[in-house]
Nucleic acid binder design. Structure first.
Lengths: 121, 121
DNA sequence: AAATATACTTAGCAATACAAAGTATTTAGA
DNA sequence: TCTAAATACTTTGTATTGCTAAGTATATTT
């Protein structure tokens, strides 16, 4: 039941996390799925149907660009995604927005805890 | 431009914040809009068209219930929203989800900062 | 009297996480 | 060897939700 809320809470965050992973080095889709789960926790266990549309979106907005590289011992090449300058800049803005929202949430959620006791309502 | 991301990042969080405000005491729509902005920051400056659908949703899910109370010095009564037991329980679950997501985000966003320097890519 | 603030409602749009299905290669196990 | 699972990429469709915009009505201020 609460999965419904989780799903909504992740909105907008995933783009940021994918960009962050690409700050380090170029990566391909499947790799991003694995790294996200491993590094950000099980709650971010994406399905392909979630990640790839994110990548296409980021590419369309020119925050990343893609290139095919042949992989060792593989016949079919992999599609790698690379960060652009615009991507780096936007990522910084995204994180700022995230901080603002996260701080607002924590301020409110902790703030009222104290007053909770014995009110009408 | 980054408003686009802000909008998405707020998804799912607003329901939680509204519920949290109702933990303290019953409140009416307009009051919630004012309190949210005041207590959670300008980034949560909601329009009526955003808040009221949230309230209807919460009511339909029986997380809150509404009652009309006449206001002092007013001819028309105000519609107050009250927390239900189910609402209190769900709010706790929502906040858990939020914590998980927020921690995952911070872990990843700070984690990679160090490795950022000089990689191929 | 007019403008602004208060108060509630609805219709419609855009964005996005996800399920599900499809395709194809590679690796591991029986 | 044959099969199952993991790897890798893509597309279609659905549900949810924040927001704009518009409408209605009372209250307060100028």
């Amino acid at each position: 039941m609460q999965e419904k809320y989780e799903r909504q809470m992740k909105k907008g965050v995933l783009d940021m996390l994918v960009l962050q992973l690409l700050m380090v080095e170029k990566k391909y889709g499947y790799q991003l799925i694995m790294e996200l789960r491993e590094k950000a926790g099980d709650i971010f266990g994406l399905k392909e149907g979630t990640l790839y549309p994110i990548l296409y979106r980021l590419e369309e907005e020119e925050l990343v660009e893609s290139r095919w590289f042949e992989a060792e011992n593989k016949q079919i090449p992999r599609k790698y995604y690379l960060m652009t300058d615009k991507g780096r800049q936007t990522l910084a803005e995204m994180y700022q927005s995230w901080r603002q929202i996260a701080e607002g949430v924590e301020r409110l959620m902790n703030r009222e805890k104290n007053e909770e006791a014995g009110k009408d309502n």
